[in-house]
Amino acid sequence: MPLGIIFKRAFRDIRQNLVTHIMTTIVVALTCLVFIFFSIFSLNLQRIADRFGRELAIVVYLKKDIPQNKIPSLYQKITSMKEVEKVKFISSEEAFKRLENYFKDEKEVLEGVDPLFLPPSFEIQINRAVYNPSRVRAMAKELAQWPEVQKVQYGKEWVDRLESFSEAVRAAVIASAVLLLVTAAFVVSNTIKLTVYARQDEIEIMRLVGATNGFIQGPFLLASFIQGVTGSLVALIVGLFCYKYVYGIIGQTELIKSLDLQYLPPSYMAVIVLVSGFFCMIGTAMALRRFLKL
């Protein structure tokens, strides 16, 4: 059957049952909106966890009295570890300079302080490709046992916590996605069923005059796809406005700015639109199959 006729009949159905179709589209939009809020939260949390994970460094403070000639061999030893991406040696003098920079205009507080009072250290950047919390933990433990090492410091615990929280949120997003999409499909399929009930006579006559199943089902499937797509687009637009509004309120602080929060990426939005349309169509196809005994 030509696509033109399917489109014509689908739009005629929508026009004739406009209120029902609008109500269904609103329900689909609300369903998608809940999912979108979960997704924004989860994706940004993941971004933050990724960023801090990437920037995670282990600082190995050496004993102050460590002989200078031991430094290169320690450097070699650390570099040879496969978890290590980059190692930087910070001498006591350089550490002091950093401290001076930190105080900037209030450098005078450091007057009279011995420039060598800070211990030398190694700043170790973890290789992201082989990043594994348990291996990093074991590595830090091993480093702490070296006789030349005074202390090992790293912010792993809270990054781990952030990651596991973000994992939990992601799982919740996936679960909610399945639940909400099934709900959307159920709602749309029921609306279509109502339309089918209302047009039972017409469907029977169409069958008697030789209409194929495609001719009968096509407009219903297209109408439900349009509902799914429209509903998700409305949800994405409302979601964007809400995001901008909330960001306008909380986004002024330096902390939030530094987190570089973002709305959903375009590819993610495209997937939401297509999946919503597709699920609504599947729900309708199942309802029609049962109802029309195809």
């Binding site: 017409e202 029977e204 006559i205 069958r207 008697l208 005059v209 030789g210 209409a211 194929t212 199943n213």
Partner: peptide
Amino acid sequence: SKSQIPQLRRKVGVIFQDFKLL
């Protein structure tokens, strides 16, 4: 088959006592 029934019905015009009109 079920999918071939429409072809048959295009060859057979049916007029009903109760008209079956919209």
